[in-house]
Design a protein around this nucleic acid. Structure first.
Lengths: 365, 365
DNA sequence: CGACACCCCTGAACCGGTTCACTGAAACGG
DNA sequence: CCGTTTCAGTGAACCGGTTCAGGGGTGTCG
């Protein structure tokens, strides 16, 4: 029984006195944990570990055995060990949620909703925040794969990265927002951003605005970013003078950018923001500059964050129905994980939530 | 070489043709992944797997070997496998963040900040949301332990639960807000809630308010909840007529509660909310009821969410300096994980951010 | 009655790193 | 010059489930 060396050496780790465990978690994790394992349950029930494993999952075993195992497990205080399960099976019950920038209030709300919806289906959300950096986004995506998440929901900063296709071959990748470049096997909850942009710009145009500033969010310098492209083509079509400026999502940072934009001469008569968070920054800036909304400048947001209705004046914004998005995304990703190949691509249409932060373009002075 | 049965049976799983892997992730994960393992790197470098493991972590090996291993790993496309690491070592580089209710905007901000701070230290936040249910909170805490997180940051709904002490023996548990019952080994970033409550109530009292509604957040029915207790003792001290009502954090739900509170006869002249999110609900309610703030009713919040300053009127609120909290909490938990026993208990003092949602109590009619 | 299918369960390999006890060689000390 | 450390590295067990090939036992069918 005793291996090489012939002498009956004490078996290594385990023979240590059980209480030698070093002080309060200063590194040194006890080699042998006192956790009840599946093998102990096996011993207690006179079954094989395999049988216990099956029984606990309610497969491959008789009702009777399952009951017996469950009872024994209870008694021994057995608790599943997700890490071990993940290693052995390659599944983890976790879904990675990769957010472009959690500084965006709307994305915070989205993440909260998705986390909750997943939990309701007995899965966890592993929420990661790329902080607006497309490079980091890809790095985090890789880490999610390494963590053996069962699926990924991403609000891609850079939908054109080839990594998405690569990941898509191994696990379900569901994008929210822009469609991922060159994929078909993956799931998508695509926003019709073209439509959203058109809605907002036409609305402003219809009110008489011609000099419009567009504040997009910090993103990859992906030149083919659909929304940006569309902004420009719409500008042309509407014969409007549109300036596109990139703004961060964080309130204070967005405010600084907005201050600049609103201090330009001639001042734009309307601002269209690519997220409500940025629009909040614009509100702060108008306050600082003593500008009236919509008297001096009209402001239109994007996303419809719950707080938008509470502002003074309530913010006109493009609404995507966040609950619907949460629901769709979770449904698609879970469906894909479980192998039920439901609908893979869901296109969401926006509505313009017309409130009072936008008004007719006033003649200057 | 071939085990039992004598016959040269094909070795089980591996001999399957490599391409038999079932359809797009419909369950069936390939038994043998094509991932490069540490053993392959070992073979390539002529070292033992153990040596490679050490080398990759930069310990127990010569500079030279480390370099050689790193190069080989690169070449072979080796990527670490966190799950395997976690199983073997009991560490995971993840810190659990257990939020009381992510519907609270402030907690969303907090979670975002902590996630980011942890990422900056090469750790992940596993964010879980108890949704205001103390029962669920404990369940999630257990799951975090099972997930082998290296530490837990919790904003406890029920600080008196014995589970905290139990978890605290195995891993660092840092609480934000109320101190956890009966612990010393754990870390704490304690809010001096008594002070916060006093600050708010004295402020309102000083403005002449005597009939005050307090909207606390949904929590455990822990009767000894420090803040609630203190509210009552302050009520007595100030000889004020204080009604305590529980409100959920979600904007619409909070609004409904606020509507009721503000419709009561006689109507309270001031409302003190235990989170800015709830205060937002009060704003919505005043709007619906056509009440002026602070003319008809003064509103005071708690937490100082960034949006509070943007409302009309800007919200008076108790400020905890969220960046400081994020920083402290992360510092304490990481310090504990790494065994550097820095300061374990940090008490934060609030400031009253005096804005214009509170004003003198107007004589009724 | 034998062939075949099906059900329930077992033994062993496996997932992919980590850690422990130990060793040969070099460095050190007196 | 010999005993003691220190350093770099090795072999094997281990973490705790999962999965696969198989194997009795019973049921069914021709």
């Amino acid at each position: 029984m005793n291996r090489f060396r012939g002498v009956a050496v004490k078996s290594p780790a385990h023979s240590l006195p059980a209480d030698v465990r070093a002080g309060p978690y200063g590194g040194r994790v006890p080699r042998k944990s006192n956790r009840t394992t599946i093998r102990e349950v096996a011993k207690a029930t006179g079954l094989s570990p395999a049988a216990v494993s099956y029984a606990l999952r309610g497969i491959q075993t008789s009702e009777e055995t399952q009951e017996r195992v469950r009872r024994a497990a209870d008694e021994l205080g057995y608790e599943a060990h997700p890490i071990a399960r993940a290693l052995a099976s390659g599944r983890s019950d976790m879904v990675g949620l990769l957010c472009g920038s959690l500084e965006d209030f709307w994305q915070q709300t989205l993440a909260t909703g998705i986390g909750r919806a997943l939990l309701a289906r007995n899965r966890y959300a592993l929420i990661l925040d790329a902080g607006g950096d497309p490079q980091r986004e890809l790095e985090l995506a890789r880490r999610l794969r390494d963590q053996r998440v069962d699926g990924i929901i991403v609000q891609p900063l850079d939908p054109s990265a080839p990594l998405w296709a690569e990941l898509g071959q191994t696990l379900p990748v569901v994008s929210i927002g822009d469609a991922l470049h060159g994929g078909k096997a993956r799931g998508e909850v695509v926003f019709d951003n073209r439509r959203g942009v058109t809605l907002a710009l036409e609305h402003l145009h219809g009110l008489g605005h011609r000099r419009i500033a567009v504040l997009t969010s910090t993103r990859a310098s992906t030149p083919d970013r659909p929304a940006d492209v569309h902004v420009n083509s719409e500008a042309e079509r509407l014969k409007a003078d549109i300036t596109v400026v990139t703004a961060p999502q964080a309130l204070d940072a967005a405010t600084r950018v907005a201050l600049e934009v609103l201090s330009a001469e001639p001042r734009p008569t309307a601002v269209f923001c690519f997220s409500d968070s940025i629009a909040y920054g614009v509100y702060a800036a108008t306050r600082e500059l003593g500008l009236a909304v919509p008297g001096d400048v009209s402001v239109c947001g994007y996303d419809s964050h719950p707080m938008s209705a509470l502002l003074t004046p309530p913010l006109t914004t493009v609404d995507w129905n966040i609950d619907g998005i949460v629901d769709s995304a979770v449904r698609v990703v879970v469906g894909a994980i479980e192998g039920k190949q439901r609908r893979r691509r869901i296109v969401r249409e926006p509505n313009l939530r017309y409130r009072s932060s936008t008004g007719p373009c006033a003649p200057r002075h």
